[in-house]
Amino acid sequence: MAIVFEKPHALTDAPLHYCPGCTHGIVHRLVAQALDELGVEGRAVGVASVGCSVMSYDYFACDMVEAPHGRAQAVATGLKRARPDNVIFTYQGDGDLAAIGTAETVHAATRGENITVIFINNAIYGMTGGQMAPTSLPGQITQTTPYGRDTNTAGYPVRVCELLSTLDGVAFAQRVTVDSVQNVNIARKAIKKAFQNQLDGKGYSIVEVLSTCPTNWGLSPVEALDWLRQNMIPYYPLGVYKDVEAGVKK
């Protein structure tokens, strides 16, 4: 018998601190698989952002830099401009990328920085214990929207792929999820493409991954996958929002 599935090299042996069933782990693996398949772990530098995934610097086996909250894409810009031969990626949550770091996100995108952005959208702040995120759904109950997100006072969720795909600097924007084997495989291809684009000098590529937060959603991991399918995907449709190479622009 031969091994057909094992831990990618670009993940360290450090056990992940994430809660049981948190899909961060799946996405970590997909990023590491992309680094493995493209043979770029040795050239890669990842930027960890503040939030649950801040300690991803212990999990990715490539060089890693921790950015201040929201500044991951500014840090990535500095890294890439300093050493264009390095393969630079950020790994960011929704609070980091779409609230405190919105300016850094929009401007890295509009500059067309040749970086790869992995965006975890789980509609909640995980690390601080379940507060409203910029991507929390209308009516969603969180610690800071105990009566449900009221759009009259808390506004509407930010649709990041839609927003960024209007910018000329963006080469590739795709929204995926990891709720099933089939969707994990789609996500895997999207993430690999986002890295391949950087190697080809195509410019800013973002993959938004609809993810679960079973703990702060108050659901079991399997129930959380159902909640994601029933509530998140309708609000955040999956698909390619922009692909300059293929001429796709939604």
């Binding site: 031969a2 899909t23 782990g25 990891v178 084997v181």
Partner: peptide, 13 residues
């Protein structure tokens, strides 16, 4: 293994 968030599963075939 594809769905395991902790990459705890190795598959042989």
């Amino acid at each position: 293994a594809t769905m395991c968030p902790d990459t705890a599963i190795t598959v042989e075939r």
